[in-house]
Amino acid sequence: MEVRTIKVFTTVDNINLHTQVVDMSMTYGQQFGPTYLDGADVTKIKPHNSHEGKTFYVLPNDDTLRVEAFEYYHTTDPSFLGRYMSALNHTKKWKYPQVNGLTSIKWADNNCYLATALLTLQQIELKFNPPALQDAYYRARAGEAANFCALILAYCNKTVGELGDVRETMSYLFQHANLDSCKRVLNVVCKTCGQQQTTLKGVEAVMYMGTLSYEQFKKGVQIPCTCGKQATKYLVQQESPFVMMSAPPAQYELKHGTFTCASEYTGNYQCGHYKHITSKETLYCIDGALLTKSSEYKGPITDVFYKENSYTTTIK
């Protein structure tokens, strides 16, 4: 009895394709271990004539594949690729409408935090270190965002349907971005203890939790000093293409032309909904596939993004 075979390709990165001759009487799992086709788990399936010449994702289970996976995804987590594939199996079914010149995501599976993050990423200057993220990001900007969303979920250790947080998501993504040249110098002034300067680099240099107003941050924000008295913390120097200011959701007025974009969060910790506000020729609110415009805006804002380049204080 002759062994019926077909020729397929296996890959971990969709760049390096490895030619395989597979036995049609055995499952993919018996031949390769966990195997995925377009995100779908085909591990328990036997090869079919229609699979001839198709590319299958496999887990990096030998040295060659491990090197290829690390170079593309910059992670050695053995569960990463499987999590990416199972997320992709959902995100490829989502709709990605162009809204006001940006790629958004039609609401499904509690994905409003991903839509808000995706919209924000198209408006701030950011370059990702893992080629996987950078490639998928370019495709997302062009309207094909399924891979990018699935990668975000995998890097953030999230599953489809789980509630997510924009600030946490951005923080994970910033860790995989090139923020080497970003720098922030802060000064804390206390009447009792004097003053202390701190220099922050990388992710810490672009994120701040405690106030939404970048102007206020430049002037000074009140913080408790270690001595128990009130101290003032203010920005001395900022070198970065953008800054992200966050605070627990509270009524906040966004003035046209003073910011790049913002995240609105309605609801409580267990259950809520994100919308995205962007400042173009007027203010726009993007909620999944829905767009509304207004000249002014007041609502429960939790993150505001500002364009920056270089700032030095005039406070002496």
Score class of each variant (00 low, 15 high):
residue 2 E to R: 11
residue 2 E to M: 11
residue 3 V to P: 14
residue 4 R to E: 15
residue 4 R to Q: 14
residue 6 I to Y: 09
residue 7 K to I: 12
residue 9 F to E: 03
residue 12 V to W: 00
residue 13 D to A: 05
residue 15 I to E: 10
residue 16 N to C: 10
residue 17 L to Y: 07
residue 17 L to S: 09
residue 18 H to S: 05
residue 18 H to Q: 10
residue 21 V to H: 15
residue 22 V to M: 06
residue 22 V to I: 10
residue 23 D to S: 14
residue 25 S to A: 12
residue 26 M to Y: 13
residue 26 M to F: 09
residue 27 T to P: 15
residue 28 Y to S: 11
residue 28 Y to H: 06
residue 31 Q to I: 14
residue 32 F to Q: 15
residue 38 D to H: 13
residue 39 G to Y: 09
residue 43 T to F: 07
residue 45 I to K: 13
residue 48 H to C: 11
residue 56 F to C: 14
residue 57 Y to G: 08
residue 60 P to A: 13
residue 62 D to G: 09
residue 63 D to R: 06
residue 64 T to A: 13
residue 65 L to D: 08
residue 69 A to T: 10
residue 69 A to H: 15
residue 69 A to E: 08
residue 70 F to E: 15
residue 74 H to E: 08
residue 75 T to G: 06
residue 76 T to K: 10
residue 79 S to W: 07
residue 79 S to H: 13
residue 81 L to K: 00
residue 82 G to R: 15
residue 85 M to Y: 15
residue 90 H to R: 13
residue 95 K to V: 15
residue 95 K to L: 14
residue 96 Y to K: 09
residue 99 V to S: 02
residue 100 N to E: 15
residue 102 L to D: 00
residue 106 K to S: 15
residue 106 K to N: 08
residue 109 D to F: 02
residue 111 N to I: 04
residue 112 C to F: 08
residue 113 Y to K: 01
residue 117 A to S: 09
residue 118 L to R: 10
residue 119 L to I: 01
residue 121 L to T: 04
residue 124 I to N: 04
residue 125 E to N: 10
residue 127 K to F: 09
residue 127 K to G: 07
residue 130 P to A: 12
residue 133 L to Y: 04
residue 133 L to G: 05
residue 134 Q to H: 10
residue 138 Y to H: 13
residue 138 Y to S: 15
residue 139 R to I: 06
residue 140 A to M: 13
residue 141 R to M: 10
residue 142 A to Y: 13
residue 144 E to A: 11
residue 146 A to D: 00
residue 147 N to I: 08
residue 148 F to C: 07
residue 149 C to Q: 06
residue 149 C to N: 00
residue 151 L to F: 04
residue 151 L to I: 06
residue 151 L to T: 04
residue 151 L to R: 03
residue 154 A to Y: 07
residue 161 G to H: 05
residue 162 E to C: 02
residue 162 E to M: 05
residue 166 V to T: 06
residue 170 M to I: 05
residue 171 S to P: 01
residue 173 L to E: 05
residue 173 L to M: 14
residue 173 L to N: 04
residue 174 F to C: 06
residue 175 Q to N: 08
residue 176 H to M: 11
residue 178 N to W: 02
residue 180 D to T: 11
residue 180 D to E: 13
residue 186 L to S: 07
residue 187 N to A: 12
residue 187 N to V: 12
residue 188 V to F: 06
residue 189 V to L: 08
residue 191 K to Y: 11
residue 191 K to Q: 14
residue 192 T to V: 10
residue 193 C to R: 01
residue 195 Q to E: 15
residue 203 V to M: 07
residue 204 E to K: 12
residue 206 V to I: 10
residue 207 M to N: 03
residue 214 Y to E: 01
residue 217 F to N: 01
residue 218 K to P: 04
residue 220 G to D: 02
residue 220 G to H: 00
residue 223 I to C: 15
residue 224 P to E: 14
residue 226 T to W: 06
residue 226 T to I: 10
residue 229 K to F: 09
residue 231 A to S: 03
residue 232 T to F: 08
residue 232 T to Y: 08
residue 233 K to G: 10
residue 235 L to A: 02
residue 236 V to M: 10
residue 236 V to Y: 07
residue 237 Q to I: 07
residue 238 Q to C: 03
residue 241 P to W: 03
residue 241 P to T: 06
residue 242 F to W: 09
residue 243 V to K: 01
residue 243 V to P: 01
residue 244 M to K: 07
residue 245 M to F: 14
residue 246 S to Q: 00
residue 246 S to A: 05
residue 248 P to A: 14
residue 248 P to Q: 08
residue 248 P to S: 05
residue 249 P to K: 00
residue 250 A to C: 12
residue 250 A to S: 09
residue 251 Q to I: 14
residue 251 Q to M: 15
residue 252 Y to H: 09
residue 252 Y to A: 04
residue 252 Y to I: 09
residue 253 E to D: 12
residue 254 L to K: 02
residue 254 L to M: 06
residue 255 K to C: 01
residue 255 K to Y: 03
residue 256 H to Q: 13
residue 258 T to G: 07
residue 261 C to W: 03
residue 262 A to K: 03
residue 269 Y to T: 13
residue 269 Y to N: 10
residue 271 C to N: 09
residue 273 H to W: 08
residue 275 K to L: 07
residue 280 K to R: 14
residue 281 E to G: 02
residue 281 E to I: 06
residue 282 T to G: 11
residue 283 L to V: 12
residue 285 C to G: 04
residue 287 D to S: 00
residue 287 D to A: 03
residue 288 G to P: 05
residue 294 S to P: 09
residue 294 S to E: 08
residue 296 E to H: 15
residue 302 T to G: 02
residue 303 D to I: 02
residue 304 V to I: 10
residue 306 Y to Q: 09
residue 308 E to L: 04
residue 308 E to K: 02
residue 312 T to I: 14
residue 312 T to Y: 13
residue 314 T to F: 11
residue 315 I to T: 15
